[in-house]
Design a protein around this nucleic acid. Structure first.
Ligand code: MN
Ligand code: MN
Ligand code: MN
Ligand code: MN
Lengths: 220, 220
DNA sequence: ATAAAAATTTAGACTAATCTAAAAATTTAT
DNA sequence: ATAAATTTTTAGATTAGTCTAAATTTTTAT
């Protein structure tokens, strides 16, 4: 059995690896993301390694074994399914769900997960646009790029966000930037790289480079 | 903050107290219900007492303080709401939900609980007929008595069960004994006190005294 | 009223998860 | 290539929750 804590570590390793294209994750990175000290991480890595959930060479960072990856994907599946539930069924905003899903993701019942998935209509993406792995851990793929890298005047669709802090998501809400919105970059400032964009052919707004970097889009 | 474990102890004390009409609960009773040893219980009681969640005098048993009771009722509220969700929304049988609800009841989010309550239509009773406390901890009350104590030939409605083990509930399923069923006791055996009962004016069955003792009914 | 039995608590030990401080290894800069 | 800085690990301690075995208290039976 994997504990609540072990599951959080595996998930953190998975996410960090993902952002680094498979490169090994460092102790300090994990300490930061799990809100603990490096010493605690070292100790946990030793234990996860004994359980063969990670590949770990002292001082050389860590990656997941197949089994570790499989567990991480199951947690991520549950996290994202519960997020869909919270938004679609209970009417939560996308900025309010992360902490609750952090707890729900550890509920240990295969049949519950599969029934929930069905109840929700087998969604492929969560409310932040993140892909929901299937029972076997396969992620639906979706080609997307940062809004900040879009070609001017191209028709775009907003598919996701790469940050999910509440303040960021609330900021997007204020600007009416929701998943599915049709976007078009009208202009990029030469001074601060802020973007002037059109939303749903209706109005236009200005957004900072930082915001544009965290918005994921595809060509329409 | 109360831990997962502390919450389970408080809930156990609440339920045991309930069955004894407010009398103090013994260490051994708690050890049995929490699946631990008496020594572990003693230790936990010392800690809960320090937190002023229970009234505890060594060797004299334990009762809940108002605060302890309030926490226990919040957990029970969540347990029963999640049970309704599992049956009404996800299609689980009443025999499959207890263990899952044991985990879900510890999810700590007031707003989640209240939104779930609304989503479910503010149910007053769970799938086993047990009352769901409201936000303030008030239990809806319902007068019921054991089927084994019913007067012969009276019209009855099945309101709940006082045991919720899967084998017992599955046994009731096989006999088509569901909440809301209209029952009538036709006869009680002088030999083994087994009952001959009519269900929904449709058919009749024989049930043992033990089963009849765990079925709660009211006059129609 | 004593002794035996049962229930409960204490003592001492263990594991998981964490911490701080110190030691060791690796990386970076001169 | 060596020293300095940074990262990581180890050592030793702490807390929650559990256990077994022993001691203590309460209850029951003679
Ligand atoms: Mn989590
Ligand atoms: Mn998400
Ligand atoms: Mn529980
Ligand atoms: Mn129930």
């Amino acid at each position: 059995m994997t504990s609540f804590t072990e599951e959080n570590y595996l998930k953190a390793i998975f996410h960090l690896c993902e952002n680094k294209n498979g490169l090994a994750v460092s102790t300090n990175e994990l300490a930061e993301i799990t809100q603990t000290r490096a010493a605690s991480v070292s100790d946990m890595l030793r234990r996860l390694s004994e359980k063969e959930l990670i590949l770990y060479k002292k001082y050389q960072g860590v990656t997941l074994t197949e089994e570790g990856k499989s567990i991480a994907l199951k947690i991520i599946r549950k996290h994202r399914l519960w997020e869909v539930f919270l938004v679609e069924k209970l009417g939560f905003g996308w900025d309010e769900i992360h902490e609750i899903a952090e707890e729900l993701e550890h509920i240990d019942s295969k049949v519950l997960t599969e029934r929930l998935d069905n109840f929700l209509g087998n969604p492929k993406f969560d409310p932040h646009g993140d892909p929901i792995p299937d029972e076997k851990g396969n992620m639906p793929s979706q080609v997307s790029f940062k809004l900040s890298e879009a070609v001017i005047n191209t028709e775009l669709v907003m598919l996701g966000v790469s940050e999910d802090s509440a303040p960021f998501l609330q900021h997007l809400d204020k600007l009416s930037l929701h998943l599915g919105a049709k976007l078009r970059v009208l202009d990029v400032s030469g001074y601060d790289q802020s973007l002037h964009i059109e939303i749903n052919k209706a109005g236009t707004i200005h957004i900072s480079k930082e915001v544009a970097c965290s918005i994921l889009v595809s060509k329409k």
